[in-house]
């Protein structure tokens, strides 16, 4: 076990991370490794800081006024908060999928091509290739290939969430952050998304925030438990859900919290 723990490199890592919204401290000294080509799940009760933490990994908190960070967030060993780091370039490498699918009010094709176009790709054939490849990778291609130029808003919730994922994949990220990606989906769409996550980890590193502990248990390799802005315990998912070391983790995952 120990050997396996060491043999997988860290794609990202936070070191002594504190986060403040003005005078309110939301994260306390969080140090967490994100292993490459693995799925890391973050669990914890509402307001525990797990989504806030997730958003520090691609600097999405920057847009909230009064946010201040202490400590380091490393991507491939480099601090993403160092002066001179371009947050837009960072977010290309570290993409994000949100709780509610948010397709743009345009065609399926244009949704996927949106990112590549912004990054300067204009060639039609190249764009078409990227769109197909991304939709394939998001397991949506077969369902939409005949209506690529119809509005993305006509897709079901589960399809929209995979579309959004395809849109993230289109800019070839290295890390994908997911904030409750299945919480608005029905069980079948959830199962599809979970299968997809399982496949995607071959090529990407995934960090997922979820309220659904069974989901965390099913899809992740590592799990971090957050409480009141602190990371209480981090371990192999299997250990967290069968024999956690901390009583607070135990109480939370057995549903005896509070």
């Amino acid at each position: 076990m120990q050997r396996m723990m060491n043999s997988v490199g860290n794609k990202m890592e936070t070191k002594g991370l504190n986060l403040y919204y003005k005078n309110f401290q939301a994260l306390f000294n969080v140090s967490l490794p994100v292993r490459e080509h693995r799925v890391t799940a973050l669990i914890g009760p509402s307001g525990c800081g797990k989504s806030t933490f997730l958003r520090t990994l691609n600097r999405m908190n920057d847009v909230i006024e009064g946010t201040r960070i202490e400590g380091e967030v490393l991507l491939d060993g480099n601090n993403i908060y160092a002066p001179g780091v371009d947050p837009v370039a960072l977010r290309k490498k570290v993409g994000m999928v949100f709780q509610r699918p948010n397709p743009f009010p345009m065609s399926i094709f244009d949704n996927i091509a949106y990112g590549p176009r912004i990054h300067g790709i204009k060639n039609k054939e190249t764009l078409a290739e990227i769109v197909e490849k991304s939709l394939q990778a998001a397991a949506l291609w077969d369902e939409v290939k005949d209506r690529l130029h119809k509005s993305a808003l006509g897709l079901s919730g589960g399809q929209q969430q995979r579309l959004v994922l395809a849109r993230v994949l289109a800019v070839e990220p290295e890390v994908i952050l997911m904030d409750e990606p299945a919480s608005a989906l029905d069980p079948i769409s959830t199962a599809k998304l979970e299968d997809l996550i399982h496949q995607l980890k071959n090529n990407y590193t995934i960090v997922i925030v979820t309220h659904n502990m069974q989901q965390a248990a099913r899809i992740s390799d590592y799990t971090g438990f957050f409480l009141n802005g602190e990371m209480i315990e981090y371990d192999y998912t299997n250990n967290i859900f069968t024999a956690p070391r901390d009583k607070r983790t135990e109480d939370y995952i057995t549903g005896r919290f509070g």
Binding site: M213, Q214, T242, A243, E250
Partner: peptide
Amino acid sequence: QQPMARDLR
């Protein structure tokens, strides 16, 4: 009940 941790054990 999908028991976890000590309940599962």
